[in-house]
Design a protein around this nucleic acid. Structure first.
Length: 534
RNA sequence: GCCCUCGUAGCUCAACGGAUAGAGCGCAGGCCUCCGAAGCCUGAAAUCGAGGUUCGAUUCCUCGCGGGGGCACCA
């Protein structure tokens, strides 16, 4: 619909004469009383709005009104009848790699790690919906200093490498010893030994710890709704990156103080003075792995914390110099996710005040269970989990992608108001109404539609363009905001409308079905579960 | 020191250079004999400061103040 109005204006503008590039916007007015769409075309092009508006004719628009500097478009009743929504396909024919989650094996996943997974999953789904062939990539860190700290910690604590909590404890011990210097030498030695597989005992601890960590990770990803297409490990990208970097010393890289560095916007170390690859060199290897697995990819997105922005700027720059041919025509892009801060202060593995992803989910599940105490549901546990996942995901996806998320561990997460469960609840009510209608044999139909459209229909029309916008901008929160508005419109309509048995009952069912479809699809694009009942 | 970000009701967040700056929580009040009250309705309450660009600035630019992040062997 938006396209249609846009095209009509552009055509009329071109007919006016050769004034160069037509410049104008068609947007959804903030206030519904200003119509369903609005344009600033007259203002920007210094035209008489009345005169210009008179020349416009758009199918599906019943009233074109000039309000001061704007031209407002009111859709016809027919155009406002909820129907098939066609989602534009700006990514058609594109292969997009989305790398996200990228956990540190050997440490339990804390809520901070969850943010990247939640954002990445939603972006992947939005891209898919708008035409892309999406490949989900996980890049776990299974070797390097972090793992060495954990292994050293285990040798001290004698913890069980099959116990995830013991791993967390061991990492804390190792990290502390590394920072105060007391264990630095030994940990560095373990690090080297792990790369070289020169110590069976340490390598064995590493393998066991990784297996434990992966079990928990897989289980958590399954609960969150992520299924990766490919995994690349740092133990693969490390050696590969090392070789590639070495082969380009003098051309792209230079040696300095025993290390191999790249001098871009700022200087970064790719191989440290012990000859081991840093994160930087591993990224070089990772790019090579990605281009071998998916030689025809068009876009590669890396979703990680915003603090890595400058880092990726330099690394992508270096990769472009190493592989000018492989990078040509492709886009490498870093997508920043914010990090999670606690109201009680910074969360830090070192201080031990981490909240693991698992424990947060469990707490929320308990809250949800309590709320459902007096209800009879088919599967309360499953439902509670859907609500818990919805609550967490919504709280991450409701603000702009790079923004930090403030989390109050005392208050837990909200299950009401501006929240995941609020939108889920609207969906559940719509489904419940549809079930009741079906039981009573009231079929959906437009036959008894009321003369005027309600707010609900006027919100529904904007679904497709919102999905497209969120996908192109890589900003799921536009969709989140929209769905909350849609849920509010539905709840409001539902509260004042006695549907079944009323004069517009068939249309009411028809409208509820449209709301149900849209809410369900929208939530799915965010990666939020869509419960049948709650 | 340099670079990047952010600053909007008491709190957590929205607002693609546009019209009367929207929500939720909290606060004050109202609504279940009726398809689900995790809901609906009403009310009080905000753009960090100073300049500039623009017909129009929360949004863009400059300066200042205040958070956060990054800048050589962590990821």
């Amino acid at each position: 619909m938006k396209e249609r109005i846009y095209d009509a204006i552009r055509e009329a503008l071109l007919r006016q004469g050769p004034e160069g590039q037509p410049r104008f916007a068609v947007e959804r007015p903030r206030d519904m009383s200003h119509g369903d769409y609005s344009s600033n075309v007259a203002l920007v092009n210094k035209l008489d709005p009345q005169e210009f508006a008179a020349k416009l004719k758009v199918e599906g628009v019943e009233k074109i009104e000039v309000a001061g500097k704007f031209i407002n478009f009111y859709l016809s009743r027919e155009a406002l009848l909820p129907g098939e929504q066609v989602i534009a396909q700006p990514y058609a024919g594109k292969t997009v790699l989305v790398e996200y989650t990228s956990p540190n094996l050997f440490k339990p996943l804390h809520i901070g790690n969850l943010i990247g997974n939640i954002l990445g999953e939603s972006i992947a789904r939005l891209l898919q919906k708008t035409g892309a062939d999406v490949k989900r990539v996980n890049y776990p860190s299974d070797i390097g200093l972090t793992v060495a700290k954990g292994v050293w910690g285990l040798t001290q604590t004698k913890g069980d490498p099959n116990d995830i909590k013991a791993l967390g404890e061991a990492y804390k011990v190792g990290n502390a010893a590394y920072e105060d210097g007391s264990g630095k030498e030994q940990i560095d030695a373990i690090n080297t030994a792990l790369y070289e597989h020169s110590n069976a005992e340490w390598s064995d601890l590493r393998e066991q710890g990784i297996a434990t960590s992966r079990r928990h990770l897989d289980e958590l990803c399954a609960r969150l709704g992520t299924k990766f297409d490919t995994e690349f490990f740092e133990s693969e990208s490390g050696p590969l990156g090392t070789d590639i970097v070495r082969a380009h010393i003098g051309k792209v890289f230079e040696e300095s103080e025993g290390a191999v560095v790249y001098k871009g916007a700022h200087t970064r170390v790719f191989l440290n003075s012990r000859g081991l690859p840093t994160y930087e060199a591993k990224e070089v290897g990772l790019f090579d792995l990605k281009s071998k697995a998916y030689p025809d990819f068009d876009v590669s997105l890396t979703v990680t914390g915003g603090e890595q922005k400058d880092f990726f700027g330099v690394v992508f720059d270096a990769i472009g110099k190493i592989f000018p041919d492989k990078v040509a025509g492709k886009t490498l892009r870093h997508v920043a996710n914010g990090f999670l801060r606690l109201t009680t202060g910074k969360m830090s593995s070192r201080l031990g005040n981490v909240i693991t992803g698992e424990s947060l989910l469990e707490d929320l599940q308990k809250d949800a269970q309590e709320k459902m105490a007096d209800r009879v549901l088919a599967d309360k546990e499953k439902t509670a989990q859907e609500i818990a996942v919805g609550a967490i995901k919504y709280s991450v996806l409701k603000s702009g992608s790079g923004r930090d998320i403030l989390f109050d561990p005392e208050q837990s997460l909200s299950l009401e108001g501006d929240s995941g469960p609020y939108v889920q609840y609207a969906l559940v009510r719509a489904r419940s109404l549809l079930r009741a209608a079906s039981d009573k044999g009231i079929a959906p139909s437009q036959s008894d539609a009321p003369e005027h459209a309600s707010v609900l229909e006027r919100v529904l029309v904007h679904y497709a363009e919102t999905v497209e916008y969120a996908a192109v901008e890589l900003e799921p929160h536009y969709l989140t905001t929209y769905l909350t508005e849609l849920a509010a419109a539905f709840n409001s309509w539902y509260a004042q409308e006695k549907v079944l048995g009323g004069p517009h009952q068939h249309y009411g069912v028809f409208l509820a079905a449209a709301a149900e479809r849209t809410l369900a699809e929208g939530l799915t694009l965010l990666g939020i579960p869509t419960p049948e009942e709650m």
